[in-house]
């Protein structure tokens, strides 16, 4: 584990098949093994904001990137996004919205709430694999994350 750079990818996805396919592609491409998968919005927020059962979460670093689905149980993706971006401690974490929706209102809403990127999930698995690989490469390898502010 680097001291300055997190290798954690946080996947927030309620659908287990989508999650499995995503994790498989990421791992197969050797992008990261440190993937945290959370299945609903409420849990995700607790985790990110270190609340509830995650209030004494041990890992020092925030995830390098959050892959966020929009259709989530309990608290939906846009709200999760807005809360992350509204919190001083977490607003710098890159959030990539990863959704099946190609709807204008979802895209616009995500960006308005501070999304760093919006990726439409292709149905075709080849395209899907390629897309996930590229997103992983970009955010886990090419992108320089914000510096951790002494916690």
């Amino acid at each position: 584990m680097h001291t300055n750079k997190s290798d954690e990818l946080l996947l927030i996805e309620d659908n287990s098949t989508d999650a499995e396919l995503t994790i498989r592609v990421l791992k197969k491409a050797g992008l990261t093994n440190n993937i945290t998968w959370l299945k609903d919005g409420a849990e995700a927020l607790d985790y990110i904001l270190r609340m509830g059962e995650y209030s004494d979460r041990s890992n020092l670093h925030d995830p390098a990137v959050i892959l966020l689905d929009l259709k989530l149980p309990k608290i939906d993706g846009i709200e999760v996004l807005a809360k992350i971006k509204a919190d001083e401690n977490t607003k710098c974490i890159p959030v990539v919205v990863f959704s099946s929706s190609n709807e204008e209102k979802d895209i616009a809403g995500s960006y308005r709430s501070g999304a760093n990127s919006y990726i439409v999930k292709p149905v075709d698995f080849d395209l899907f694999s390629e897309t996930v690989r590229q997103v992983g490469t970009y955010w886990m390898q090419l992108n320089t994350p914000p510096p951790a502010e002494g916690k």
Partner: peptide
């Protein structure tokens, strides 16, 4: 789309 993706993904 989700199950479709699953069908396509897992058959692949």
């Amino acid at each position: 789309k989700v199950p479709l993706r699953a069908i396509d993904g897992f058959s692949s």
